[in-house]
């Protein structure tokens, strides 16, 4: 993309975006809602023509005449999953049939793709009857079945239950590493961007704020977010290495709560815990996770499609959870809960 502008009537959605995506890389477009991530993805997918600027694919300038090249070489997974009014199998098979692949091969690829997202059991079910998380996984299976050079994903894990998030992230990592697929993922979650991407492009108000290796952009973004107090679960404490081989750091927070993290920084440190990475339960769960805090649910807040639990665990901790999970666990305000999270989910800087 070279100096790409997109106007929607009075709205100037993209303001001179220049972005070079390398073959086989995992790039994350990160930014708040309305920053221009989705518009950038739609331009990459060939669904939207830039108002100004140039778009190149393998050194060929994309015009209205050859825009279909982008669609042939990329697949999009939309933020809100959309499916044809037929079975899961036929939805995943659609793109393969368009490409004239034999029925035998289609059956093999569809089964394999559904197995990757653990949806093989639902092959004959109407796609639109599935839960939101399952529909997202089917949409991902449909995209990866085509094995295109580029995979474009618009907030693929937003509002998903934890199980689906883990599956989706694992599949994306594998597709990128094993098949060499170029993955461009839009997300507003700084932690997800850091966890998955090789590079991060931070977009704000239709402009690129920063771009570079995931680690460096993450740190830059984190400082900005902390300054703007947008980030939750940020604590100051004192770090001591307790396991040099495993790189485990024990951080004692100001009020005595101890949290284990992966890191090398010692002394005065700041830590953050992603609200998406915390498992909440009424009973203590047996797991390899190094952190398990006991606390009381102070309040439950609605944040779009998710719920945010404000838990007093010696320190105020926020946990994102879906309404379905909340109902299943039967958690209410003032309940005692356990918060379990891995040391790798705690970021130290």
């Amino acid at each position: 993309m070279k100096d790409v502008h997109v106007h929607f009537d009075e709205i100037h959605a993209l303001r001179g975006i220049t972005l070079d995506v390398r073959e086989g890389e995992f790039l994350s477009l990160m930014g708040p809602n309305g920053s221009g991530k989705t518009t950038t993805l739609r331009v990459f997918a060939g669904l939207l023509a830039p108002t100004e600027g140039e778009l190149l694919f393998k050194d060929t300038t994309i015009t209205d005449e050859n825009r279909s090249v982008l669609r042939e070489n990329s697949t999009v997974v939309f933020q809100t999953p959309i499916h044809f009014g037929t079975s899961v199998f036929k939805n995943v098979a659609y793109g393969l049939r368009i490409r004239g692949i034999s029925e035998r091969e289609i059956e093999r690829v569809v089964k394999e793709s559904l197995a990757l997202v653990r949806m093989e059991h639902a092959a004959e079910r109407p796609a639109r009857d599935l839960s939101g998380g399952e529909q997202r996984r089917v949409a991902l299976a449909r995209a990866i079945a085509l094995d295109t050079d580029i995979l474009l994903l618009d907030e693929p894990t937003a509002d998903l239950d934890k199980e689906s998030k883990v599956i989706v992230e694992k599949v994306l990592r594998n597709i990128n590493k094993d098949r060499g697929t170029t993955v461009i993922l839009s997300t507003h979650d700084v932690f997800r961007a850091k966890r998955l991407a090789d590079r991060i492009a931070s977009i704000d108000a239709g402009e690129i704020r920063s771009i570079g290796p995931a680690d460096s952009v993450f740190r830059l973004e984190l400082e900005t977010l902390v300054d703007e107090t947008e980030l939750r679960n940020v604590f100051k404490g004192h770090g001591v290495i307790v396991d040099e081989d495993g790189g485990i750091l024990q951080v004692t927070l100001e009020n005595g709560v101890v949290i284990e993290a992966v890191g090398e920084n010692t002394g005065e440190v700041t830590i953050t815990i992603s609200p998406d990475d915390i498992l909440v339960s009424k009973e203590r769960v047996q797991s390899s996770a190094r952190n398990c805090l006991n606390g009381r649910v102070v309040s439950i807040e609605q944040d779009k499609n998710t719920r945010v639990l404000h838990v007093d665990a010696g320190v105020p901790i926020n946990v994102n959870i879906t309404q379905a999970s909340l109902d299943r666990l039967g958690i209410r305000e003032n309940d005692q809960v356990f918060l379990t999270f891995k040391a790798s989910s705690v970021l130290v800087y």
Binding site: A45, G46, L47, R71, E72, S74, T75, V76, F78, T80, I82, H83, F84, Y94, G95, I98, R99, R142, L146
Partner: peptide, 13 residues
Amino acid sequence: DPKIRELALTLGA
């Protein structure tokens, strides 16, 4: 839903 057409296009139609 206009996204049906878009979906088909993104799948190579």
